[in-house]
Design a binder for these strands. Structure first.
Length: 700
DNA sequence: TCGCATTCCGTTTTT
DNA sequence: CGGAATGCGA
């Protein structure tokens, strides 16, 4: 992309910039932030830093965490910011306990951020708007510098990005956006599809060019994609076409468990690689949630198939990395309270909860940042001598390195290495010789190397710029790791990529679409667009897979296959055996279908007598119920199928005293805790029932 | 204050 | 299941 843009613009790339909104405006704020009260060394807070700050504000004000948890509060505040609703306006709009409490925390959170000289992700867009509004001249400067503005994936822009684009393009009116409403998958984080839908109204002179020819995929894949997206009511009419070949059928793979699914994927990859001469780099495995990567990784690892995982707990999200980063942030920006709290007592140095509380109280009372309180330990009367000494030692450690960093005489990587050594971080990791600790230690070394490399390769590199860049790394940045490897990622991370062979795994009700997203039409349609995004990543071959059972929350859960599979054009799909896809178009109608026993027959407990992993066994228990057990391979987890309640299985038709007849969608837990999700027709919808209480009668 | 044990709790998806 | 938050004894 960057290359292509460069070719368009020519060699004179002065003033040109390619990247995300966030990193563009973070850099802009570095230069211009002082005009609205931020020094260039501001910290960038990720979601967990924000959460930490919010939790603290709630504690400070004695707010009941049962009403709103910090995590929820963080999300609510973030959404508000995405819609450009400030604390004052929020307070006016707040309705109900939760929102009213958030209304109380929101302004305090904003003050805390300010005091920490920190910006959260949302601020990186909001503050530039503030800046442009208060300083016309700055806006003008950038309008002149960036005479043309191009925005890709415009369907994923939010309100703030919309305003920024409008402002920047305000002078030259050279704005070009590319987007596809069918690929809008970020509504949950404030992306506003109306930005793209109303573009022609907002810019009446705009020319619209429809891109309806697909150069990527085979006819079969496009037919499948079309059949998916046409189920959405909310969309712009398009007719896609391609000159590409018909191609292979789309294959549907059915597995017994997530492990089985992973193995099937792995075998298929190796098979294609050998027979079709494909490389590992030609394959992508896509899934709905990051947790699903584990099973697939395991299968690939056992067979020595090289792979890379995009996203998930990425390198920079690991605890040990965040710890080191927190030390570095503190050097650069001592008022960064979230970072200070993170490491003030890690490794433990005698500054426990009580001492921290007292520091905090002192800071609040004297309107100081936490670090400023640390600097004045001697004045804090509530502290004993032992605590005072511990805090003093810590203060001197940080101050020593901060001044070293200030003079710039020591190379940043060397400074960082010495600091974490002195702070005891390295010896903490060497304390116990476990494999995990060794890995963590290596990760820390890798971070330092990354810092060294960054300093080497970047003009005017400082620790501060490094930290700001690192905070904004995206999944896509991780992707260009070289090497011939299978790529594993979430469907969200797959946006904008393409691969000869694509697997979309985990097509099960409750997982994809996610249970939570099935109630609201708009959310279900977003899930469907996500499915659309997934299948349109494929160039040559597409595999869809689902597993009859899957571990979730450490419990085994049985599943029915995703409703999306019942919706697709079955003419282009074949099962693994080469058979046609049998769809159950009526499965969501409650009235009872002629073939409704089909699922049930397949779910007969005997079905599971087939050994899942090679070393299973069976047994019986003493409660009078016959059970079939198998031990699930290396995990040693016991899989128990309870024949006593046996008939309540996915697919079974049941009757409830209040809701009437319905169809079991999934069953979770066992014994006392067993629950089932039952669909009672479109009026009632899905209900989650405890089998212990809900007396379900099996009918038919 | 620390360290261990126990309980609790959750999963979307991400800049 | 696994990580984080809480509780308790030393």
């Amino acid at each position: 992309m960057q290359e292509r843009v460069q070719r368009l613009v020519g060699d004179d790339t002065k003033g040109m910039w390619v990247g995300t909104f966030h990193s563009a405006f973070a850099r802009l704020l570095r230069v211009e932030g002082d005009k609205i009260g931020y020094s260039e060394d501001f910290s960038i807070y990720d979601t967990s830093d924000s959460k930490r700050l919010i939790r603290q504000q709630m504690q400070g004000r004695n707010l009941d965490r049962d009403v709103v948890k910090p995590r929820a509060a963080q999300r609510m505040i973030s959404s508000a910011k995405n819609e450009m609703i400030g604390p004052r306006e929020y307070a006016e709009l707040a309705r109900g306990d939760q929102q009213e409490m958030v209304a109380e925390v929101y302004p305090a959170y904003e003050r805390a951020l300010k005091q920490a000289n920190a910006l959260d992700f949302d601020d990186l867009l909001l503050k530039p708007i503030e800046l442009f509004e208060q300083h016309e001249d700055v806006l003008e400067k950038y309008q002149r510098r960036w005479t043309h503005v191009h925005i890709d994936e415009y369907q994923d822009t939010n309100q703030a990005q919309y305003v920024l684009a409008r402002k920047l393009a305000g002078r030259h009116k050279n704005l070009c956006v590319v987007g596809d409403d069918a690929q809008s998958i970020y509504a949950f984080r404030g992306a506003d599809i109306t930005n793209i839908l109303n573009f022609e109204q907002d810019y009446p002179d705009a020319t619209t060019i429809r891109l309806e020819r697909n150069y990527r995929s085979t006819k079969n894949i496009i037919r499948l994609a079309d059949s998916i997206i046409e189920k959405n009511d909310d969309q712009i009419e398009k007719s896609l076409w391609t000159d590409n070949v018909e191609g292979e059928y789309v294959a549907l793979m059915e597995a017994l468990s997530e492990k089985d699914e992973a193995q099937k994927v792995e075998r298929r990859i190796r098979d294609l690689q050998l027979r079709e001469g494909l490389e590992y780099g030609d394959f992508a495995v896509l899934y709905r949630t990051n947790a699903q990567s584990r099973a697939i990784e395991e299968a690939l690892r056992t067979e020595n198939v090289a792979y890379r995982v995009i996203g998930g707990t990425s390198f920079y999200e690991r605890k040990e990395i965040k710890d080191v980063l927190a030390y570095l942030k503190l050097l650069v920006n001592p008022n960064d309270t979230a970072s200070l709290q993170r490491i003030i007592n890690y490794p433990t140095r005698g500054i426990g909860d009580k001492t921290q509380e007292r520091l905090q109280r002192y800071a609040q009372q004297n309107n100081l940042s936490l670090w400023q309180a640390v600097e004045r330990v001697e004045e804090i009367e509530t502290l004993g001598t032992r605590a005072e000494r511990a805090v003093g030692t810590f203060r001197r450690l940080i101050a020593r390195y901060a001044s070293k960093a200030g003079t710039g005489s020591t190379p940043p990587d060397e400074l960082a290495r010495d600091l974490i050594q002195d702070a005891g971080l390295l010896s903490e990791l060497r304390k116990e010789h476990t494999r995990e600790n060794l890995q963590r230690w290596e990760n820390v070394q890798e971070l330092i190397s990354a810092l060294a490399e960054y300093v080497e390769s970047t003009e005017e590199a400082t620790i501060s710029t490094f930290l700001q860049e690192v905070a904004l790394l995206t999944d896509q940045d991780e992707a260009d790791d070289e090497g011939d490897k299978v790529t594993l990622m979430t469907l969200h991370a797959a946006k904008g990529t393409e691969y000869p062979v694509v697997f979309v795994a985990g097509l099960e009700e409750g997982l994809f679409p996610l249970e939570k997203a099935t109630q609201e039409k708009s959310e279900l349609e977003e899930e469907r667009r996500l499915f659309y995004v997934g299948v349109t990543r494929a160039e040559q071959r597409l595999y869809l897979s689902w597993a009859r059972s899957r571990y979730r929350y450490g419990e085994q859960q049985s599943n029915t296959r995703s409703r999306f599979l019942e919706e697709v054009d079955s003419d282009v799909v074949r099962t693994e055996a080469g058979g046609e896809l049998e769809q159950q178009t009526d499965r969501f109608k409650a009235g009872g279908a002629p073939d409704s026993s089909r699922d049930y027959d397949e779910m007969d407990p005997h079905y599971y007598r087939q050994d899942l992993s090679g070393d299973g066994g069976s047994g019986s228990s003493d409660d009078g119920l016959r059970r079939i057990e198998s031990t699930d391979g290396d995990s040693g987890r016991r899989v128990v199928y309870d024949e006593g309640r046996g008939t309540i299985v996915p697919g079974a038709r049941v009757e409830h005293s209040k809701f009437g007849q319905g169809k079991v969608q999934s069953v979770e837990g066992e014994g006392e805790k067993a629950t089932a999700v039952v669909f009672f027709g479109s009026d009632v919808g899905n209900k989650k029932l405890k089998l212990k209480y809900a007396k379900l009668r099996v009918v038919g």
